[in-house]
Amino acid sequence: MLRILIVGASSAIAEATARCYAARGARLFLIARQSQRLEDMASDLKVRGAADVAFATLDVNQLDAHGDVLSQAWTWLGEVDAMLVAHGTLPDQNACEASAELAVKEFNTNGTSTIALMTLAANRFEAQRHGTLAVISSVAGDRGRQSNYLYGSAKAAVTAFASGLRQRLTKVGVNVLTIKPGFVDTPMTRDFKKSALWAKPESIARSIVRAVDRGRSVVYLPWFWLPIMLIIRHVPEFVFKRIKL
């Protein structure tokens, strides 16, 4: 039986992923901020076929609470076959330009807290010598762009951290999976005008599960963001700084 741990479980992509695993009869441990949401999800996932579901609440920015929650999860699950770190916010770039305090706070939510969690989880994976540590980064982390470089820089930190961690943990049989979604139609992106580039959380979730199954290292979701980001990364700086993205 699959044992799955999800942080930021109430995010749309995480919830859709949890449903995929529930349909496979997995045992799931969910971590999020609101206990009511977690309760609702737990009953839902059980109906959808999960063997069992437990949860704990956590504010990811309370770094000193991470260890305790992870230990609860590992105790309940025994071992973890896959952990998905999916929490995040979409900061208001303009507001972050006006307030250093807000900028740092958002960086912490999207970058620092993720790195802290992965640091502790990595040591547990290293000890059990198998499993997948998957983290949702973003295409925004591939290159800082004027429209959301605070978010982008936090995700860049996550991507770089995951890359290094993958090198370290591959040697003990643990896979680190970096997931880079493009635009996804979720409550987090409610106010955006949607175009053909936008994907549904359900299809992103199915791709995440497939990437975990296949032991992939880095995935762009949907796949067409790979060539798009390849181009964006290679636009020369003297051109890049003159355009608006």
């Binding site: 609702d40 009953s43 839902d44 409550p187």
Partner: peptide, 9 residues
């Protein structure tokens, strides 16, 4: 449509 959770079956 976002209220799409099962409660009990």
């Amino acid at each position: 449509r976002g209220m799409d959770r099962y409660i009990r079956f």
